[in-house]
Design a protein around this nucleic acid. Sequence first.
RNA 1: GGGCGGUUGGCGCAGUUGGUUAGCGCGUCACGUUGACAUCGUGAAGGUCACUGGUUCGAGUCCAGUACCGCCCACCA
Length: 878
Amino acid sequence: MKDIPSRYNPQEVEKKIYRRWQDEGLFGAEASSRKKPFTIVIPPPNVTGILHMGHALNNTLQDILIRWKRMQGFASLWVPGTDHAGIATQNVVEKKLATSGKSRDDLGREKFIDEVWKWREEYGSTIIEQLKRLGSSCDWQRTRFTMDEGLSQAVLEAFIKLHKKGLIYRGNYIINWCPRCHTALSDEEAPHVDTEGKLYYIKYPLKEGEECRVKGEGVVVATTRPETMLGDVAVAVNPKDKRYKKLVGKTLILPIIGREIEIVADSFVDREFGTGAVKVTPAHDPNDFEMGKRHSLDPVLVMNSDATMNENAGAYKGMDRFEARAGILKELEEKGLLVKTEKHQHAVGHCYRCHTAVEPYLSLQWFVNMKELAKPAIEAVKKGKIKFTPKRWTKVYLNWMENIRDWCISRQIWWGHRIPVYYCEICKEVIVAKVKPETCPECGSTRIRQDEDVLDTWFSSWLWPFSTLGWPEKTKDLEYFYPTDVLVTAPEILFFWVARMIMAGLEFTGEIPFSDVYLHGTVRDLTGKKMSKSLGNIIDPLDIINEFGADALRYSMIVITATGQDVFLSKEKFEIGRNFANKIWNASRFVLMNVQGLALNKRCSRLSLEHLADEWILSRLNRAVEAVTKSLGQYRFNEAEALVYDFFWHDFCDWYVEMVKPEIAGGVKGQVLLDVLESSLKLLHPFMPFVTEAVWQNIDERHSIMQEAWPRPDKKLVKKDIEERVETIKSIIVSIRNIRADMNIPHSKRLVVYLVPLKKASEAKLKGGIDYIKNLARLDELVIDKDMKRPEACATAVLEDFNIFIPLKGVIDIDAERSRLTKKMQDAKAQLSFSDRRLKDKNFTARAPEKIVAQEKDKAEKLGEQITRLKSTLNTLI
RNA sequence: GGGCGGUUGGCGCAGUUGGUUAGCGCGUCACGUUGACAUCGUGAAGGUCACUGGUUCGAGUCCAGUACCGCCCACCA
């Protein structure tokens, strides 16, 4: 034991310990188990991902729950895996190809997909390895990937089922189009960003011969995207708008293009905004699309899929959308049709992958009708079958679900689950099937081609809780581990993922996918910005693990994260965890050096408790066990950590170990010391798995601490009276230490302390504690005397139960001390009067910076307080 | 436009159903190296709990409103 180093060195032990856990198969859980199941599925990180602090927080929380439940005797299963992240991964591989001057079109679809798989083989397990560094106790045997065979089957099954039910349809609608990624996006994938734009007022002249009363000879419309005017098919005004009443039905000439367009009345138009007249562009705006339908106007598409202008754009054909915008504005200005330009703040959708401004764009896409699916998912939450923590997210969820819109699920990319729809090129029959049919069931033709599009990545993720357990097969795993227990994730993907999983679970398995959703906060830097690569404010978890250790990362991260609150991180915060790990290490080292040969795992309650300290620490321990367990059950992780920390550091190390040290020095082996250490290690293990295991190996090298049972509180050992007695003793010790510090009493001097009991019951409170007082306050003699009168030159303290007298004659040189204090007081007074003079000096107060003046005031105030204190101390010396 | 979160000692934050003296970590100051730990120990200083009003015997905690900071959602061109 003596060769245990005095510093905990995480780098030395972590990998070794992790390997041992894995080798012994301690992370696995079996469906045949007689235990109760406890299941969590990991929010699958993107296969392109590298571990960031958000992952660190998310996975630490899950690991805490999984390890805790495992120790509690559950078949605790944590299913890991990664997400194929369609667009993100395709972008990464395309970028890589670009470095060798190639595009995906150069390779063609099949070869490109091969490249992506190669990329995945090479880099796809990066994040998995990083999760292991964190200590995550996932059942790695079950690692899944959203594109693997089983999950692909689940995707097909889900698509076909929904299609059969009529909940999947294909149609021409306005969707969010990312011109850079070249694909449609769902509404959730195109978050609005406030953008400083411009509002252009453009005059559309009336057709010759048409009568006009508005500003000469035309109608002025306002738009933020002038280039789309080329696709205008009408101008709309509010039917109640008197200004335009007579113009409804008249014809305008669309500038540049020269198309004749009608003025229509539509109550959608807001009379207050702009000029009250709106250009109608059904192919490039969702509202206009609806209006176009209402007025039977055919859309005119003016852009290609890469946001260049198409053949309908006349002279602007081939230009990029922004280039065309500039050109069109110039032309309008030249023709005197650009009436004015205003600054305009508006929200513009941006691609969540590449941040390009999306283009509302008319195209043929696949959709899921969500209204039906939402109903039971709303019910499940309303009825409390699924609970959100913190509760406030319930409302956010319900609000979104109650206003849910159809989900655009087709993507015009190559990496992903290809849509299982086939078209007969002869008779145009549409066939939905798991595998490509040989012949067309209608006409028998063999000319059959598959839909080119792939499904939204989230179409596979929404099946994750059950597809990873084998669905659509009826597996044992599915039966045993599903529904899962808790989903731990960030609120950012509440709509993307959580809500959709609930819908999918209820639709496809008839059950809720999980009963609890714990939503943790977002990791931000100290200025409140979200940590992200582009902002360059990243703290890399692996750097922290390398420098401070995984336990330090885990502990610090959790203890500073209040339930559901955002986390503001800086590197220094990890010192908390590092210091604590070291404290655990050293306290254990001390215990182990002194308890050799004692029995392990003895039940504390069976021991004869002869010592006050033993009874006390067991009372505190059992209180802590109960509180920590309760907090974990409520997902109050930071509270649970703070509780173990306080117990271990303050109760156990600061007081208990110090109380029993003299006995140990006298050769007494501390069974309770060892027992409490063991229980503490178990309580700490879910939070700090590595250091607790490292210590445990010194206690019992044959078994992992992971196999130990989570402590149960023994209420019989919680003793309020004992705790109160020790509180009294502690307060006496603290008072004496206070005086010692105040009076500068050297430890070398013989110190006698008199305790004068103030109440009848006071003396009894000292029972069994006198030695603790003598040792911890480092006294030579303790006299208890209820008739004691205050001696001369004596320091005093008054407590609830006792007066404390400490005669100072012979202990300190009273005269010297008095003159030291007097001198100190004089110094303080001198400084104060200097300060006062300065503050009264108008030259100073008027000219010095405010900050300096404030500092001076502060200083003066503090000096005043110091003088008061010195005075009272001097009084005790009389 | 709608919804949500935050405001507590110099800094970063806890504070569960309203209940004695409002806690913790860092930082500051003083002392300390007695064989677990200086990644430590002992002690000290430091707070009108954003503001206004209300409910209550009692409010950091509940209610109403105000201010500032932040987030999410939203098809006014």
